[in-house]
C-alpha cells in the first residue's frame, strides 16, 4: 500500500492503518530499535508502542515522509528505554559505542535546553551534513541516526571497517570545528 493511502487510513481512523504500517515498516522500525537496544524483545515492544504513538499523532500531523516519521518515533522510544535500562552504566549495545563517539564532539557540560538554540543547532548540523559528499552524509546518518555498526556500514558502502571508522572520526572532528566556528560550544 502506498504511503498516502496508509496516511489516509489514519485520517479516517481506520485501524487497518496500523496493520498496514506494521506490514510495510515493521522491519525498518525493528532494525532501528534493535540497533539501540540489542534485544529483540525490547525492540518489538518499542515498535508496537510506536504504532500507538503514530495513531495518536496522525491526525492532525501529516508526515512528510512516513518511513522517517515512524523511524523517529521508534528511535526516540528505544533510546528512552535504553537510558532507563542503562541508567547507571553503558555497555553491550551498539548505541553505547555511538554515544562514546559523540562524546568527542561535546564537552559534557551545560545542555542546550532552550528550544530555539536546539532548533538552531539542528539547522547547523543539517547544514554541515549538506556540505558533505553524499556518501559521507549517508555514512554519518547510518552511524549516528540509525546506529548501524561499523561492520554494517562497511558492508553497505563497500569499504573496509578501518576506512569507515577513519571517515567517521574525521566527520566528528569536522562537525565539532564547524559548530565551534559558528559559536556553538557543545
Amino acid at each position: 500500500m502506498e504511503d498516502h493511502e496508509i496516511v489516509r487510513l489514519y485520517f479516517e481512523r481506520d485501524e487497518r492503518a496500523i496493520s498496514e504500517t506494521a506490514a510495510k515498516y515493521g522491519a525498518y522500525c525493528t532494525k532501528i530499535a534493535v540497533n539501540i537496544l540489542s534485544s529483540r524483545e525490547d525492540a518489538e515492544e518499542c515498535v508496537n508502542e510506536s504504532w500507538l504513538h503514530a495513531w495518536n499523532a496522525i491526525p492532525p500531523h501529516r508526515p512528510r515522509i512516513l518511513a522517517t516519521f515512524l523511524g523517529k518515533i521508534v528511535r526516540r522510544l528505544s533510546f528512552n528505554r535504553y537510558q532507563f535500562l542503562h541508567a547507571e552504566k553503558r555497555g553491550g549495545c551498539e548505541v553505547s559505542a555511538v554515544l562514546d563517539e559523540l562524546a568527542e564532539i561535546v564537552s559534557d557540560g551545560e545542555s542546550a535546553e532552550d528550544s530555539v538554540i536546539r532548533r538552531e543547532l539542528i539547522a547547523q548540523i543539517n547544514a554541515f551534513l549538506r556540505s558533505l559528499p553524499e556518501e559521507k552524509r549517508r555514512m554519518f546518518l547510518r552511524r549516528y541516526w540509525y546506529s548501524d555498526s561499523i561492520a554494517e556500514i562497511a558492508a553497505r558502502f563497500g569499504k573496509r571497517e578501518n576506512a569507515v571508522s577513519a571517515a567517521l572520526s574525521r566527520m566528528r572532528k569536522e562537525l565539532r570545528a564547524y559548530l565551534q566556528e559558528r559559536g556553538y560550544e557543545l
Binding site: T68, R75, F79, V98, D100, L102, V106, S111, I122
Partner: peptide, 16 residues
C-alpha cells in the same frame, strides 16, 4: 551538552 543529548538532537535532522 552530553552525548545522549546530541544523539537526541541528531534524531531531529532533516527527514529527507
Amino acid at each position: 551538552m552530553k552525548a545522549a543529548q546530541l544523539y537526541e538532537l541528531i534524531g531531529e535532522l532533516d527527514e529527507a
